[in-house]
Simulated scan of single mutants.
Amino acid sequence: MTLDTERPGKAPVSSVTALIQVEHLSRVITSRAQKTVILDDLTFAIPSGSLFAINGPSGSGKSTLLNLLTGIDRPTSGRVIFSGEELRARGEDALARWRGQHVGIIFQFFQLIPTLTALENVLLALELGGGGGLPRKQWRERALTCLEIVGLRDYGRRLPSELSGGQQQRVAVARALANNPPVLVADEPTGNLDSRTAQQVFELLAELINLGKTVVYVTHDPQLASRSTAHVTLLDGQIVEQSGAQAALTSQEGRS
């Protein structure tokens, strides 16, 4: 069983276009005493269907950038454009609804509800995100399908405490898939796992692009970043290296 890769009423995104464009993006925190530049004039694009890495050492601005890409935080200047729509044009409530439908978020520390089973955690995502365009009577089967994709269909009745760390992260991936978003974002998704389990979880994320997903992940590990299909490397809030990202932006601009 596979998860549909097309959202109801929307054409599939072309694999050769930029799904997310970042234009002159900056984030500055100003207080009476000082001005702190977190991100400084970033311009790049995330190709649709890519396994996209945001790489850099601790304090380089990776998590702040991820928050801007998902609309959790607002830029001081510059733009994030998702499928041709600028995120900052939406109000906070509209952004929250948009995020529930278009972005699946995977946390480093899983963030599963401990009193809910694995299946119930995925069902909760469907409840909060509107069900991915499906009628309510199909939600349970969608949740089971998502657990099947991550290899845990038979673990749906287990509580998080009855699962290993790797299994909990797989449930978190299933939850992120629940509403069939085009983009999944992960902030250090393997950072809380042992090396063997981290490898398995990363391979699962890499396989999701075969379902038509775009996967954006933050990592401080150059080895994990090197396995991406496109990436940017940050240092002190600036891009010091990129691959695959600028080409997509140039291609997109050439069609406009």
Rank of each mutant, 00 (worst) to 15 (best):
T17P: 01
A18I: 11
H24F: 01
T30R: 15
Q34A: 15
K35S: 13
I38L: 14
D41K: 03
F44M: 05
G49A: 09
I54H: 07
G56E: 08
G61W: 02
T64C: 13
L66M: 08
L66V: 03
N67E: 00
L68I: 11
I72R: 12
I72C: 10
S77W: 05
V80D: 04
E86R: 14
E86D: 11
L87C: 06
R90W: 12
E92A: 09
D93L: 15
L95V: 07
A96M: 09
H102D: 00
G104W: 01
I105M: 06
Q111W: 12
V122M: 06
A125S: 09
R136E: 02
R136Q: 08
L144Q: 11
T145G: 01
G151W: 07
R153S: 14
P160D: 01
S161Y: 12
V171R: 01
V173I: 15
N180T: 13
L184A: 06
V185H: 06
D187G: 09
P189C: 10
L193R: 12
R196E: 14
A198P: 12
Q199K: 09
E203A: 15
L204E: 02
K213F: 12
D221E: 08
H231R: 15
H231K: 15
Q242M: 14
A245P: 04
Q246R: 15
